[in-house]
Amino acid sequence: MHRFANPARFLNIARPFTGWLFWPGLILLAAGAGCGLFVTPPDYLQGETVRILYIHVPAAWLGMAGWGGIAVAALMQLVWRHPLAAVAGRAIAVPGALFTAICLITGSIWGRPTWGTWWEWDGRMTSMLVLFFLYLGYMALANASARQAQGGVSPTTAIFGLVGAVNIPIINRSVVWWNSLHQGPSITMRGSSIDMALLWPLGLTLVGFTLLFAAIVLMRMRTILAEAKAEARMQRMARG
């Protein structure tokens, strides 16, 4: 695992991968969104509004997977003292928070024509809003400690990231545990209750958004590493 601990070796891999992830992600996303808007038939009950599914679901997935990534990075930072893990945690926070916000807003836009309300305090919506606030807290802690942590995050921030992961299974189970306005899970281990005619563009946008997310994380990691390197060099020059 420490093979990539050396930033120079990591950068040699990250540089080509940024483009390799970004462009296929963009193409898949354009294809998925185009098909989701113009090719698939409308839903029997909701009509055209069902098309919001193709962006709402990937945003929800990335918001939650982002925090999963923060938690794994925090574990690697606290247990193995992996130097890049702290940088990865900080790099994930911004896109994770953005996609959580996109999930909340597209959900709200979807709720108005279908449910008849922009917002209700049911279990799913409330726990997703809590995730957004957790991201804001993590980013505030990370920014406050960035200087001492050489661009990474402080151990306190990492512990916060680990503790916040408790919310992820709660979001996932919220529609099963509690009566909620949000419907139950459509895609389970037993199959999908979304008909194939409506389901297939979701695969394209899911993979597309995920690749873009990974490209953004790599760009942000490269930025943080470069800034830390410049900072260190400046300090050495000032001393020498």
Binding site: P41, P42, D43, Y44, L45, Q46, V50, L53, T114, W115, G116, T117, E120, L181, Q183, G184, P185, S186, S193, I194, D195, A197, L198, L199
Partner: peptide, 11 residues
């Protein structure tokens, strides 16, 4: 408020 279920399908 209308609550729909987890099924989506063409008309």
């Amino acid at each position: 408020l209308a609550k729909h279920d987890e099924r989506y399908m063409p008309r």
